[in-house]
Simulated scan of single mutants.
Amino acid sequence: MATLDHAFVIMPTEASARKALTRDGLRASYRRAHPGQGTRNLCACLDDVFLEYLWFDDSEIGVAARRAGLVGRSCRLGLCWRGAAPTEVFAYQPDYLPQGVTIEIATLSRDPEMPFFFGFKGAVPPILRKDGLPGRRQRPRFARLSSATLFHPQASRLARRVAKVDGLELRRGAPELDMSIVDPGGRMRRRIRWHG
């Protein structure tokens, strides 16, 4: 079964990404550039997932990134799974990954009105990563995601096309990702809503 690995929201600029991260009560665990994809990010790691604030910079966007459907999206929300692909996918070879390492992108992600669904083989929860990027994560204040609900006008179409992703619920509504974060003791501490 697929499990939610991380969620992202596309922001207009780095400044707006930083402002949203602060508004959400989080701190950046790390940041990355994606050469050839034309994007950069700030990532806030919890124990089980991370939240990614993504924006397009002024660098060149490669053909592969354009074919993957990242450019010109009307829905700014994205979700990544780990584990078996819950839907039909195609392989995306971004310039910033080693040759032969691909990302599985859901074919429905080519529709710019749909959330961008993808998976990365070998992904592990931030608490198990060995590369040191997650750092202290969001502890001691926040520990893990307790729920994530994706609202979308075409939720029934999504449900037909995407098998169950553990940790994610689909509901009909205006595009929005509603997430609840709990502290190490399991008490609800933060509700984050990203509008798509």
Results as ranks from 00 to 15, higher is better:
M1Q: 08
L4G: 07
H6N: 09
V9D: 04
I10Y: 04
M11N: 01
M11K: 01
M11S: 01
R18Q: 15
R18S: 13
A20E: 14
A20F: 05
L21M: 15
T22M: 11
D24S: 07
L26E: 01
S29A: 14
Y30Q: 08
Y30H: 12
R31Q: 15
R31A: 15
A33D: 12
A33C: 00
A33Q: 06
Q37A: 15
Q37S: 14
A44V: 10
A44C: 14
D47E: 13
D48T: 09
V49L: 05
F56V: 07
V63N: 12
A68F: 03
L70V: 12
R76E: 00
G78D: 01
L79V: 04
W81P: 04
G83F: 03
P86T: 02
T87P: 00
V89W: 02
F90I: 04
F90M: 05
Y92I: 10
Y92A: 08
Y96T: 11
L97Q: 10
L97E: 02
P98Q: 10
Q99A: 15
T102G: 13
T102N: 09
E104F: 02
E104N: 12
T107Y: 04
S109R: 01
M114A: 04
F116T: 00
F118Q: 02
G119I: 08
F120G: 10
P125R: 08
L128S: 04
R129H: 10
D131K: 01
D131L: 01
G132Q: 03
G135P: 01
R137W: 05
Q138N: 14
Q138W: 11
R139E: 15
P140R: 06
A143L: 06
S146M: 12
F151L: 13
H152W: 00
H152T: 03
A155K: 00
R157H: 10
L158P: 04
L158I: 03
G167E: 03
E169C: 10
R172G: 13
G173K: 09
A174Q: 05
A174T: 06
L177M: 10
D178C: 13
M179T: 10
M179C: 11
S180Y: 00
D183T: 05
P184C: 10
M188L: 15
